[in-house]
Design a protein around this nucleic acid. Structure first.
Lengths: 216, 216
DNA sequence: TGTAGTGTTTACCAACCGGTCAAATTATCG
DNA sequence: CGATAATTTGACCGGTTGGTAAACACTACA
């Protein structure tokens, strides 16, 4: 009788976990494609293969569904940056960070688009998380980058805008996928697209970051 | 009696032009903020300062309004790339192209977000224009860039992904404005944000493109 | 001033949407 | 098996949405 959300103090059953997983998977599919407002509960229910009231038994509102989804995505989305290691070799760290971000754009485009959709709308539901955990993490990594520059390990540059540019260039291949396809032509296979992108971005960032001839 | 759209064979009156302009301005405001589905005709009518039926007298459907808006935006959006001059100095051309794109992100963020919203949704209404005029223009400029590289004027790199990276990094400051603000902190004034971004992007792209010491 | 066309508004509608409810079905466990 | 709780469903509801009908107002011009 009592909806599972209220009974969460107890352990969740396996069936609840599975259903919630199926729902969030379907919600990701629909939200990422149509945005929050554009998605309908009926649509999500259909993709999840269950009736609307049944879906609403697990997530009482559309908003609850979206919130659960976006906080989860935001968390995994920051993993690559968390791995960014102050102790490692600077150039190697950037190289693997860029590669990880590009792989996420390739393998999890729906998550990227969900996030993009949310930020585009002004991030009404995640503003606090952006100003809190996200900002804190970026501040931390920016300090690392600045220290590297001061130590002469990489060229000096604004660490925040450097991170922004890595975010934007990599996520572009998920969020603007249709445009990229249209310009490159459909014949260009996915593999090739991402390989070319990886090669270019490495050239752009690593080439630009490495200390070489400082003249002119 | 007859709606103006059908009477378009005749010249449009001044009042029609003005009203349509007011409507498209309001539509841009609302669509860019809430996306196609999230925007309501009532909302647009209110922003435009007229009643809904009155608005629908000038644009018979919500979709017609959106289509008129997006084709116009797409057109002006490509202007900076059109100005990209094959005869000019390569480095100077890139520098001014980046600056123009960044200025557009600063001065016309709504247009950028409208476009981003559309592409995110799979560009259902502009797919043809992406594969047609857009692709043609990019192909043309890509050839120019390749020729510059072959002539040794800039370093060799994939011209398509270079253009993508300029698009994504500059538009990021319009589309992900909320995130940028959250990370940099609200105290950072707009002017400073864009100045810093301009300085960084110049360093990234121009520094990376210029021919200097080629040794590892 | 009459009238035809242009522009505007009030009232309205059918479809859709998020969400509820009560009843039915199924799983759990003594 | 019996009983209790968990899950699922069809029917439904109030509010919103895109769009329409028709009357009304304004303007230009003979």
């Amino acid at each position: 009788m009592v909806p599972p959300r209220a009974a969460r103090t107890q352990r969740r059953t396996r069936i609840q976990e599975q259903k919630e997983e199926r729902i969030l998977e379907a919600a990701l599919e629909v939200f990422s494609l149509h945005g929050y407002r554009g998605a309908t509960v009926d649509q999500i229910a259909e993709v999840a293969g269950m009736s609307k009231p049944n879906l609403l038994y697990y997530f009482r509102t559309k908003e609850a569904m979206h919130r659960a989804l976006i906080t989860r995505v935001l968390d995994t989305w920051l993993d690559p940056l968390r791995e960014f290691d102050a102790e490692g070799n600077p150039v190697a760290e950037f190289r693997s960070y860029i590669r990880r971000k590009l792989e996420m754009a390739r393998d999890f485009p729906r998550e990227s688009r969900l996030f993009a959709n949310e930020v585009l709308r002004g991030a009404p539901n995640i503003e606090d998380e952006l100003k809190g955990p996200l900002k804190a993490l970026v501040d931390e990594k920016a300090a690392v980058i600045r220290a590297w520059a001061k130590a002469g390990k990489i060229v000096a540059c604004d660490p925040y805008h450097l991170i922004f540019s890595i975010w934007s260039t990599t996520q572009h291949y998920a969020d603007f996928d249709v445009q990229v396809r249209a310009v490159l032509g459909e014949e260009k296979a996915d593999e090739s697209r991402f390989d070319d992108a990886a090669r270019f971005l490495e050239q752009l960032f690593i080439g630009g970051l490495q200390i070489r001839d400082q003249g002119s």
